[in-house]
Each structure stands twice: as structure tokens, then as C-alpha cells.
């Protein structure tokens, strides 16, 4: 283990986190990733509401949505639910 890691005497008991879990990138193991067609997207925000990971953000200043691939698990709910079929799931490696 890295020497930066704390010892058992330095950490809080029972696994209480001393750092926010948002620093822990959990989206790096997906098989499929969502991609978006700006032409078709009506910014209805259905995907933003349905994403179980909160990994789709609405950027009002740009009037568009954005995927946060650091947390997206590639479940495909957004693509399945999009009323205008603006989201497509693609293999991440492509």
C-alpha cells in the first residue's frame, strides 16, 4: 500500500469516511456508454430525472445535458427512456 494511506490509529472507527465519496470515481468499469445526438435532444430532462447515479447534468446556460462518465455505469436507462431516441449506447472501447 502507498505510504500516504493512514494507519489504523489515524482513521475513524467503523469505516466512517473522512473524504467525500464523490472523489471516488466509480464509472471506470462500464461496458457501454451513452452518447447523445444534439439534433434530436429536446432537453426534456427525462434522462436527468431517471439516471440512478445522478450522472447526467443539465447545463441551463448551454441549454443542453452532459454525461459525467466518471460516475456513469452504462446501464442504458437514459437511452431506453429518451422519448426522441437522442441517446445511443455504444461500446466504450470503440
Amino acid at each position: 500500500m502507498s505510504s500516504k494511506e493512514k494507519t489504523w490509529k489515524e482513521i475513524s472507527m467503523a469505516g466512517v469516511c473522512s473524504r467525500s465519496s464523490t472523489g471516488f470515481m466509480t464509472g471506470d468499469w462500464k461496458t457501454y456508454m451513452p452518447t447523445r445526438d444534439l439534433e434530436k435532444c429536446t432537453v426534456c430532462l427525462t434522462c436527468v430525472m431517471l439516471c440512478p447515479e445522478g450522472a447526467i447534468r443539465f447545463r441551463p446556460e448551454m441549454k443542453k445535458i452532459e454525461f459525467d462518465y466518471s460516475f456513469c455505469k452504462g446501464c442504458g436507462i437514459c437511452a431506453n427512456e429518451c422519448p426522441t431516441k437522442a441517446i445511443t449506447m455504444k461500446l466504450e472501447q470503440e
Binding site: 500500500m1 494511506e5 482513521i11 467503523a14 469505516g15 466512517v16 469516511c17 465519496s21
Partner: peptide, 11 residues
């Protein structure tokens, strides 16, 4: 606070 989180090889 976060209780009962995951702790793998590191902690």
C-alpha cells in the same frame, strides 16, 4: 456521515 461503506485491500 457515511456509515458502512466499502473498504477493500486499502483499508
Amino acid at each position: 456521515m457515511t456509515m458502512g461503506p466499502i473498504a477493500l485491500q486499502n483499508y
